[in-house]
Design a protein around this nucleic acid. Structure first.
Lengths: 106, 106
DNA sequence: AACATATACCTCGTGATACGATGCATTACG
DNA sequence: CGTAATGCATCGTATCACGAGGTATATGTT
């Protein structure tokens, strides 16, 4: 998938991945894989960005001797998802503009 | 609208704007305004990029004493639009992942 | 015991790119 | 005669996805 097209959706995808229950880096990547593939470097960049924006909080816990950093969505994070849904209407209108009348060339 | 969300759609929007008939910078901005607002600097960057990618060709013509640079879509440009439509299915699947089950928090 | 693979975290540098700021020239309007 | 609208273009900046690289532990596998 085109990198550019993913932009603007990735942040929200990560928030959606921790929406129902707290999760950690490795798990988030696995959960998102069926929808979007993203590398670890990309994910950790996004997580840090979202934390700086107060859309999630972090907590470190031990699991099988290894440390895991769990991410928890905040109210602001939920609001971000809602905002995304509102903006989606504009996205759809753009999509319709692009696709209308293109059948003749297909 | 979120800048990031526009990315990946802008190129295709510009191609769609010249799909039915050749157009020029100023006109393209006006035609796209109802769907996406983009500045002149952004548009000319995109047009140059699309020309470099052979998705459009240019032609300069005089109109009322002023020079206009007309842009004409190529076959590769049409194919780009078709590609975009295919990728859209993935976008929809991402959208559904993000929105499913969010009702409880709305 | 030695080695690979999976789990789990993180940083740095690079390239792509949207956009504001800025500049230039002509026409139209008040 | 000034101001907006038309029409083109460049440069610098900030944002951001990602590959490359680094660290460490647990679990197979030979």
């Amino acid at each position: 998938m085109d990198i550019q097209l993913k932009r603007g959706m990735l942040d929200v995808c990560v928030l959606a991945a921790i929406r129902d229950e707290d999760s950690y880096g490795y798990q988030i990547i696995k959960d998102l894989k069926p929808y979007v593939e993203l590398s670890e470097s990309t994910l950790y960049t996004i997580l840090k960005r979202l934390e700086a924006a107060s859309m999630l909080t972090t907590r470190t816990a031990e699991h099988d001797g290894r440390l895991r950093k769990y991410y928890h969505i905040t109210d602001a994070g939920h609001r971000r998802i809602e905002e995304f849904k509102k903006e989606w209407k504009e996205v759809i209108s753009i999509y319709q503009f692009v696709t209308k009348g293109e059948e003749e060339h297909a």
